[in-house]
Design a protein around this nucleic acid. Sequence first.
DNA 1: TAGGCCATCTGGTCCT
DNA 2: AGGACCAGATGGCCTA
Length: 191
Amino acid sequence: MKTKARPPRRRVGAQSTEATPEDQTPDGAQPDSGAQLARGLRSRTAQKQGPRAEGRRRRQGLPGAAGRRESSVQRRLESNERERQRMHTLNNAFQALREVIPHVRTDKKLSKIETLTLAKNYIKSLTATILTMSSGRFPGLDGPGPKLYQHYQQQQQQQAVAGGALAAAQSQPEGHLHKYSTQIHSFREGS
DNA sequence: TAGGCCATCTGGTCCT
DNA sequence: AGGACCAGATGGCCTA
């Protein structure tokens, strides 16, 4: 629980033990050389396939072996880039969520698990607050009130069935608020 | 130094 | 077929 905002890191990953200084790129841009990736591919896939596939091609003198390896490396690089972008998108979403959740601790960035847990309980406490304030009286038939209330009741019933007495106790609006405020407090203390 | 958190790579599986 | 998604592995950074 001691996460702090850090500059983008250049990971070394599976090839790190074989990486040379020139493999590192300070700006985090596409750092993997084809040769380095090929080493990685071999070392990883060899554990499952062994040298059989490549060896077979070589023995049979198939003409496209090197070219296929090259295109395979290219595909892997493109796949890695897409995966990086996907994770960046996911992290942007996490950051957006952090900025929306009210919390006390401002000197340290919330970790991902903290963000999710806090968000869940924040939503629950807001739902409970809305229901409490509405006092069972909802706006017109087209409004969100009845649906929200029905959804809330269903959730509570499911939790009561699954978790028994504890869930039933936590299903009270005060339970959500208490849980949320307790969590904020514990995060502030870094526990 | 250990433990927590994270970014990245990777191969498998699912989906369009 | 190709891309998205997922989970395991790995190693770097940071704090106590």
